[in-house]
Design a protein around this nucleic acid. Sequence first.
DNA 1: AGTTTAGATTTACAATTGTAAATCTAAGGG
DNA 2: CCCTTAGATTTACAATTGTAAATCTAAACT
Lengths: 128, 128
Amino acid sequence: MISNIPKISEAEWEIMKMIWRDHPATAEQIIERLPADIEWTEQTVRTFLNRLLKKKAIIPEKSGRSYRYFPLVQEDECKRAESESFLKRVFNGAVGTMMTNFLEDVQLSNEEIDKLQKILTEKQKKKQ
Amino acid sequence: MISNIPKISEAEWEIMKMIWRDHPATAEQIIERLPADIEWTEQTVRTFLNRLLKKKAIIPEKSGRSYRYFPLVQEDECKRAESESFLKRVFNGAVGTMMTNFLEDVQLSNEEIDKLQKILTEKQKKKQ
DNA sequence: AGTTTAGATTTACAATTGTAAATCTAAGGG
DNA sequence: CCCTTAGATTTACAATTGTAAATCTAAACT
């Protein structure tokens, strides 16, 4: 089955992240919970919700006078799709290069480093 | 100085990658060298070139009847900008999560694994 | 019941993007 | 010197996106 993940725009991602994190969510709630650095009017948020509805990324459930929204696409799948697209576009699909680039560029906590190393070691074990 | 990296669209990335890899490049050359799975007419490619010119991402140099294009923005910087944007949009800026996700999802060659591990070890050393 | 109003729905509108076709122009061929 | 033509430039056009305003509608208040 071809998992049909709709194309989610940058602004829509913001909305989807809210809904994934905490659903069902009303427009109201989403508006309240938006990160402080985002300044969208209510109308703007409702527009994005409608576009996500049209794209079948979320599904509404009537609740009193308003709707509660549930995700219809999975966070994991969307992340994977978006990651693939990014990887291909920017790094020609070369994961190694991409990783190296990130690692060199960014600082990580000791815990994060440990975790990554553990995953790598696991991967290596499985290989031989 | 605020390094002014223009927003480069998906199609434009394809062109920029060609120009970074091998410049100066004429429109002709770029068209020839495009990956086989991309089917753009000459006009389409020229449109993208013009848009990149307008965005000051490339710079032309007259050469006979045609132009040779040079990159005006650096590959590294563009990659970094694009990576940051992706990271923020999809993973809320959490590099660790992103990395973990990728690592779990993707297969790497032994060499790549080694290289990544080396980088991680380096990073750890520097920390204490 | 009539009025306000919160939320939903419709409409708007410019910028960007993907995808070119149409047209212009100068250089090379006859 | 005129014609062809390769490449450049201009124009096109629908879809998507960011950003809402305008309007509709049903519920809540008086």
